[in-house]
């Protein structure tokens, strides 16, 4: 038997309002929504449309070319999709997103949420606060803290730890730059995953778990066949949000490595920044942003499709 588990929708909520009432509330609704609509139009819709326009031109920010930008059609897109540096940056973005967000944050966030839902766990407040801390800390402070941890001299926290075992100081951001920023991003994002999964786990009916236990299911089987299908929606919602935010990560990576060494951590956001602002090629930078936007949109659609729960 197949049934779809959707939240019950009350008839009252879907019943249309009477015409007179709608007319009476019209100005108030317009007044309340108006500022949001104006702000969204001004700061999201128009820049996005302008960015699409720029991506079709050879606009530069400096030099004589800046005075007379030309329409170049899809040339910027053709250039980027055959440009090794850009394709590398997409590859690095995919690696960074997959390991830090999809694997790292999601798995560790789930583990943390499950641990916090255990009645036998002592010191939940302390544990929860420790996990939440990275999310509260401003990005610059987090970057500074990790720059200190990963510092290449013997005073770096990690080098002090490895030094206890007789190891020489290592320049972690040189030797394993991508792994380093993946770990930093996992650390930063695990709290949000934990909060979302904790809320989802609380909605799982205890009777279902107990029934499965009585039927002889192990803890892993309960999680795999009962809990996970029931929280599939929130899990995919989290994956969607974390993918979008991780693809756009800039400050953390820029502060720690600036895309180096040798372009090993030049993720797409760094590439776009370099092209658009450092090298003043705003047309190419905009085209790269549009490509990234399309990729994220495709991923979003995939997640939304996968999130439809059928048992």
């Amino acid at each position: 038997m197949t049934s779809t588990l959707d939240a019950p929708v009350s008839a009252a909520a879907t019943r249309p309002l009477p015409k007179r009432r709608r007319q009476r509330n019209g100005p108030l609704i317009a007044l309340l929504l108006g500022p949001s609509v104006v702000l969204i139009t001004l700061f999201i819709v128009l820049p996005a449309v302008y960015s699409i326009y720029l991506s079709l031109t050879n606009t530069q920010l400096t030099g004589f070319a800046a005075r007379d930008p030309q329409f170049v059609g899809l040339d910027n897109f053709a250039y980027l999709l055959t440009n090794g540096d850009f394709l590398n940056s997409l590859g690095q973005t995919a690696t960074f997103t997959f390991f830090s967000a999809i694997i790292g944050q999601t798995v560790l966030g789930m583990v943390a949420a499950i641990l916090l839902s255990r009645p036998w766990l002592r010191g939940k407040g302390l544990f929860g606060a420790a996990v939440l801390m990275p999310m509260i800390v401003p990005e610059v402070v987090a970057s500074l803290a990790w720059a200190s941890v990963l510092s290449n001299n013997s005073e770096g926290t990690l080098n002090r730890l490895t030094g206890l075992f007789g190891a020489d100081p290592t320049d972690w951001l040189q030797v394993v730059p991508l792994t380093s920023i993946i770990i930093v991003n996992i650390w930063r994002g695990v709290a949000f995953a934990m909060i979302m999964f904790q809320a989802a786990l609380e909605d799982v009916p205890a009777e279902l778990i107990e029934a499965a236990r009585i039927d002889g299911a192990s803890a892993l089987q309960v999680f795999r066949h009962v809990t996970l299908p029931l929280i599939r929606g929130p899990v995919f919602l989290y994956l969607l949000l974390t993918t979008i935010s991780t693809v756009g990560v800039f400050g953390l990576v820029y502060f720690l490595t600036q895309g180096g060494p040798g372009g090993q951590t030049r993720i797409a956001a760094i590439y776009i920044y370099e092209r658009a602002l450092q090298f003043s090629q705003i047309g190419i930078g905009s085209a790269a942003s549009i490509i990234l936007l399309v990729i994220v949109l495709i991923l979003g659609i995939v997640y939304v499709r996968l999130a439809k729960v059928e048992v």
Partner: peptide
């Protein structure tokens, strides 16, 4: 200067 002057 060349880049900024060029751009006007």
């Amino acid at each position: 200067v060349p880049g900024f002057a060029g751009a006007g």
